[in-house]
Simulated assay, not measured.
Amino acid sequence: MQLVSVAALAENRVIGRDGEVPWDHIEADVRQYRERVAGSPVILGRRTFDSMRDDLPGARQIVVSRSVDAIDVPTAAVADGVEAAIELARETVAEGDYPDETVYVLGGGAIYELFQPHVDRMALSHVHGAYEGDTRFPAWDDDEWAVDSETAYDRFTLREWVRREASA
């Protein structure tokens, strides 16, 4: 199983302000994001899940929450922490028809921070410009990560990051 963080972040790592993205809508980014996660399991926090209830991403949602133990959505399950979510993701991938065995981490900010030590890759839309916000994507050590691919779009650059092999 591969864990992959997916996020759009400004040059100053801002990802949100008052529960919304702080930049104007970028259709190309939303489209590539939706296509990426469409048939895969996703991990997200309860507030992010609640904000997406009308248009849930992924084929199966693993909601990380300590305040609820059940969600009234048939494709969603609740995990009470990182380890429980990772175990549920492994079970989901093993039981389902997910050929690439990828599980996407979709945020919010605290979820990205909690899962950062566990992710194998990051698919990050680097939005041009710096924005004011109250939520940031966690910093990462450039020595631990390398850009695997990069695609320029109008208003953002999509970078696929891979965790470097640990030296023996």
Rank of each mutant, 00 (worst) to 15 (best):
M1T: 13
M1D: 09
Q2C: 01
V4Y: 00
A7V: 09
L9W: 02
V14G: 00
G16L: 03
D18W: 08
G19S: 07
V21D: 00
V21T: 11
W23R: 09
D29H: 12
A38H: 14
G39N: 12
S40T: 06
P41M: 04
V42H: 05
L44P: 04
G45P: 05
F49E: 09
S51L: 15
S51V: 14
S51M: 15
D55V: 06
P57C: 08
A59T: 06
S65I: 09
T75A: 14
V78I: 09
V78Q: 02
A79I: 04
A84S: 12
A85K: 03
E87Y: 06
E87V: 06
A94S: 14
G96K: 01
Y98I: 08
T102L: 02
V103L: 06
V105M: 10
G107N: 09
G108S: 13
I111E: 07
Y112S: 01
E113P: 05
Q116A: 15
V119G: 05
R121F: 04
L124K: 00
H126R: 13
V127Q: 00
V127Y: 01
G129M: 04
G129Y: 03
Y131W: 12
D134W: 11
T135K: 12
T135D: 08
F137V: 03
F137Y: 13
D141S: 09
D141M: 10
D142H: 09
A152T: 11
D154Y: 01
R159F: 00
W161C: 00
W161D: 00
W161N: 01
V162G: 10
R163K: 14
E165A: 15
